[in-house]
Structure formats: structure tokens, C-alpha cells
Design a protein around this nucleic acid. Structure first.
Lengths: 125, 125
DNA sequence: TTGATTTGTATTACTCTGTTGGAGAAATGG
DNA sequence: CCATTTCTCCAACAGAGTAATACAAATCAA
């Protein structure tokens, strides 16, 4: 019902993955990107597809089918891109995510924050 | 069930609020802090209490009753503090929050990110 | 001392999100 | 063809998010 509503944590991850994959955002690649963002937590493929469906229902993303590619098992993919609503809502919740980080980093100290920043960069290149 | 599980978005907000309030974390003050973090989104008081209950069930926070204070309407408060499990889980999900921010900031550009950082600091002091 | 006001806690009941597990379609390769 | 790979999608359940509302305990002021 509430169309302008806030995102759940997982929806946020999925939208972020789509954003960062740009032209190459489809089920499997989105799943891989989400796992990278959510590590060390595991994420099931089904969870991604269900969430994509719901985000499309809300008008936050749109999708279309591509042609098959000439590789083993290379069937048609359903590609996704962010719509205007999705951008706006993601923007909002990203700002909230940053606020959380800032507050926590302040309480637990700069040293702690720097450590986690490093670890993330090493693992994700 | 899953004790090491990940946090929902709202649980994360509530834990962060408790962390930043230190000695003065009780229902009403937590609610105020959560609204500050989640702005411009509105948050109901009931949502906070229900979430606090659930977090306590999971052992992430503990609570105790204080004595009434000598002010108008100053009845006994139920105060909260983070437990070890809560700290660990919050830490994890804070790192995820930062990853989301980093990815988005990279895609949408440094200029955009700087703007939001400024706005937040002004509003929250 | 009683009723209005302020501050605060708690519960109920519901919708929406998160997650698992598996079914099965469309491509290639021997 | 049959095995294998890549990929999409559904059903069903547990858990998180929210609104709405009831109620409890303190002060204030006449």
C-alpha cells in the first residue's frame, strides 16, 4: 500500500547491487553482488528473485528479457534497472545507513572504523 | 532459533540508538533518537517497544526499572543497555551498512555524498 | 483531594518482508 | 538424445515493522 515507504534491509541490498552492476544486472549476477555486500552472511538465490518481484510490483525497478547468449547454458536473462522511485527511496535509506555508521563509528572509535574499512577493501578489491 | 542471525533494519536502528544514548536509554528517548536517525521517516512509539521486547528475548539487550524522578509526570523508566551478543551483531550489520553507503557513494559520486554528509551534521548537531 | 495534565510503559492484531527449498525451462556439448 | 549448465520462478512459512489503543504513575493547581 504505502508506495513511498522505506526499504527493508534486504531490498536495500538488492537495489544497491542493481545500481552497481549497471548494464549487467540480472538474477544470478545480482545474487553474487548481494552476497559480496552482505558477507559473511549467505544469501539464497530464491530470496533474490522474490525480492526482485516485489520491488517491481512497487515500481522501484523494471525488467525485460534479453536474447540468449552463445555459451553453454546461456539462456535468456531477465535484466533489471532502477526506476525513479527506486532511486529516490534507495537514496533515502542509504543516508540512513550512513547515519548509523557514523554514530557507531563515533561511539566505538576511529581506530575500529578504520580497521573495518581496510578489511572490506581488501576482500572486495 | 538463530541466535547469530542478522538484524532487520529497524532493530539495527534501535540498537544504534541505545548505543549512542549510553546511560539514558529508555523507551521515549530511544524513540526520539530513532526518529532522528531515520528522518524524514516517522516512527511510532509502539514499534519501538515491540522491538525492544523482541531484542530482549534474543538476549541482545537487557533492561531494568529505575526509580521515579522528581519531575512532572516523571514515573519509573525501563532502561536498556546492549549485551555482548547485541554488540557483535550490531557491529556486523554496521559494516554492511557502510558497504552499502560506499558502493552508492561511488556510483552517484563524491559530490552527492559530501552534500548528504553536511546535511546530516547540521540537523543533528 | 480530586481531576487535568504530563510522561511513560505495554499489548494486540495485522501486513509486509525475509528466507528456504525445490520445480522446471532453455541453452550447449558430447 | 541425454547429461550438464545457466537461469527463472513459485509456494509456503517464520519473523520483522506498524498502527492503534489501553493503561499506569507521577506532578500541578484549585
Amino acid at each position: 500500500m504505502a508506495q513511498t515507504d522505506s526499504l527493508g534491509q534486504f531490498e536495500q541490498l538488492v537495489l544497491t547491487a542493481i545500481l552497481s552492476l549497471r548494464e549487467d544486472a540480472y538474477g544470478v549476477s545480482i545474487h553474487a553482488q548481494v552476497e559480496k555486500l552482505a558477507q559473511p552472511r549467505a544469501v539464497s538465490l530464491g530470496a533474490v528473485y522474490v525480492t526482485l518481484d516485489r520491488l517491481e510490483d512497487k515500481g522501484m525497478v523494471s525488467s525485460w528479457l534479453t536474447d540468449p547468449t552463445p555459451e553453454r547454458g546461456g539462456r535468456a536473462k531477465r535484466c533489471y534497472r532502477l526506476e525513479a522511485v527506486g532511486e529516490r527511496v534507495l537514496q533515502e535509506s542509504a543516508v540512513t545507513a550512513k547515519r548509523i555508521w557514523d554514530v557507531i563509528a563515533e561511539v566505538w572509535g576511529k581506530e575500529w572504523a578504520r580497521q573495518w574499512g581496510k578489511k572490506w577493501r581488501k576482500e572486495a578489491g
